[in-house]
């Protein structure tokens, strides 16, 4: 039965071909450092799932943001778990992505023909940092408020356009309801959209070009 359903679907969707291309592709002999991209992908998916769940109860307004998070932590069953995974997963994702970048750099895996894979990777790391920066404000507690004050102030020190950047980040001169709602929008819509598209390109290139072997004496 299951076999029949599978072959019916496979005939129409080409599932076997997708499986062979993605999971049974040829790879050189590699080591554990080569698992960090997949680890980052897994953590990214977890962030997406737990983030969607948090949005069930979270509201991005100054009068309720903090209360809604308190409610998630104490009033909803397993709210602490969902938020905990999102909180710690965020830090872990930055860590795995960063070490992934170091691996690619030290093994010289960014070289021809994989320069564009590297460029999309840089985009992803910057977007992940953007997610971290915008997500940090959302609990609207003292720490996030002042972290964003300082962060946007740093952006404000850019010569000539600094003041413009600071105002654009904050949605005005001061940190306000406008800052919270635009950070929320960036955090759940704009960065995720960018990341989704860039991860797609990144993975397509990894599969299309294959991964490079560990450099030996000849290379």
């Amino acid at each position: 039965m299951a076999e029949n359903v599978f072959s019916w679907l496979d005939e129409r969707l080409g599932l076997k071909a997708i499986y062979d291309t993605i999971l049974d592709r040829k790879v050189p002999k590699v080591n554990w450092w080569f698992t960090l991209g997949s680890a980052s992908l897994f953590l990214g998916i977890m962030q997406g799932i737990t983030g969607m769940l948090l949005s069930v109860y979270y509201v991005p307004t100054p009068d309720h943001a903090y209360d809604s998070i308190t409610f998630i932590m104490t009033g909803v069953q397993f709210g602490w778990l969902i938020r905990g995974i999102h909180h710690w997963g965020a830090s872990l994702l930055i860590l795995t992505a960063f070490i992934h970048m170091l691996r690619v750099f030290f093994y010289g895996a960014y070289k021809y023909p994989r320069e564009f894979t590297w460029i999309t990777g840089v985009g992803l790391l910057i977007s992940a940092l953007g997610m971290g920066f915008t997500g940090y404000l959302l609990p609207w507690n003292q720490r996030s408020y002042w972290a964003t004050t300082v962060g946007s102030e740093i952006a404000g020190t850019v010569p000539w356009v600094g003041d413009f950047i600071l105002r654009t980040l904050r949605g005005g001169t001061n940190l306000s309801a406008l800052t919270l709602s635009r950070f929320f929008s960036l955090h759940i819509w704009i960065f995720p959209a960018i990341i989704l598209a860039t991860v797609g390109t990144h993975l397509y290139l990894v599969i299309r070009l294959g991964i490079s072997h560990i450099p030996d004496k000849d290379s």
Binding site: M46, L53, V56, V76, Q77, F78, G79, L81, I82, I85
Partner: peptide, 12 residues
């Protein structure tokens, strides 16, 4: 992760 999610949704 999945089983707590059900509780997370319906507990209120």
């Amino acid at each position: 992760v999945g089983l707590p999610v059900i509780q997370y949704f319906i507990s209120p």
